[in-house]
Design a protein around this nucleic acid. Structure first.
Lengths: 193, 193
DNA sequence: CGCGACGTTGATTTGCCTCAACGATTGTGG
DNA sequence: CCACAATCGTTGAGGCAAATCAACGTCGCG
């Protein structure tokens, strides 16, 4: 099976022995997604946490005009889900879907919880993941408050160079919080420097 | 001493026995802050995590024009710090200071780590705190992408009703990402509804 | 009292959006 | 294999939300 990416990803934080890794793997569900296929829809309760093996997913929300706004991209090796919904059991505000043909594994919430209580090392891993995410979201929030659209775009390019080559401009525009038209203009006019 | 607020706050998540609580308390540092006094300055490494007993702190960043942008308010009962800097040891991008006369306790990073390894229940608490924060930041990011300035203000009022009465308008404006002038206009003109 | 922080209001500017049209590319079904 | 639809990036014209700059009144405080 293709759980190697997940296991090596976890090994960067904690060393599970073989038995523990087997327990973890026994909880995994495998799934293929086609382009535009949804893994979570706004209004549903988020009952799983997903790890991307290949392809690329995104989480996004829809505003009152029907426009999509991307919160996060999850290329291979990343986790994705609606954390608030999963913690509280309330309906999700986020949608999660695939931007291209993708392969994911996911763990259902009850299994995730029992893994956490049975394997202290997994609990540790989970904490590291969450605290890292807090740091990242704090800084992203700051970027959005302090940087102009062009600067946000440049920062995105520096932070996720591989995504720039794969993603449609439209999606990047949505992530940095501008319209596709405006990003296009920025790249053609203003970027002469 | 005044560690009761901290202890009751932790008890909402995990039940520490007396010995464990004593260990925790033995790591606490107590400090009073005057208005405008800093607990962390951009460029320094964040070496502690702070819990607010009374008063109100904030974290903020400064943009290239010298303008301040508030990331978070921390009234009594809240935690505050620069998570990314604390995790990585890199210089902080955030400043933390007191908006009014305040009283805080903090735990130094090494003590925080040893508490976490020695008390599994504390590790659990720490994880809950982080995962909650992730959920909150995800939704705040979505709010900033999908809501207009007026809507963000109303949401702030609903979410933090007590802060509205205490904070200068200026600080709220900075938090929701508009200038003080524009917030003032919104409240006087547009708010006729 | 005088100074600094705050809120307000006016005039002007600007960064970004909206709407609309068009060409290029991709994918898809007949 | 071609025709058509869908998606995407681009460009233009016009509009609006929010910023900027500046001036002024008020309040609390050293």
């Amino acid at each position: 099976m293709d759980h190697n990416l997940l296991l090596t990803s976890i090994r960067k934080y904690v060393q599970l022995d073989e038995e523990e890794e087997n327990l973890l793997v026994s909880y995994l569900h495998h799934r293929r997604l086609k382009r535009r296929q949804h893994l979570l829809a706004e209004g549903d309760v988020c009952t799983k946490i997903t790890f991307v093996i290949s392809g690329c997913l995104r989480s996004y929300a829809i505003d009152s005009n029907g426009a999509e706004h991307v919160l996060q991209f999850a290329p291979s090796g990343w986790w994705i889900g609606d954390m608030f919904s999963m913690l509280t059991g309330e309906p999700a505000r986020l949608n999660v879907d695939a931007l291209e043909e993708s392969e994911v594994v996911f763990i259902l919430k009850p299994d995730f919880e029992s893994l956490t209580t049975r394997l202290p090392k997994f609990a540790h891993f989970r904490r590291m993941l969450a605290e890292n995410a807090v740091g990242t979201y704090q800084y992203r929030q700051i970027d959005n408050l302090t940087l102009s659209a062009i600067e946000r775009y440049k920062k995105f390019c520096n932070t996720y160079p591989s995504l720039i080559r794969t993603l449609p401009q439209k999606q990047v525009a949505s992530y940095i919080g501008v319209t596709p038209e405006f990003l296009s203009r920025m790249l053609n006019n203003t970027m002469i420097n």
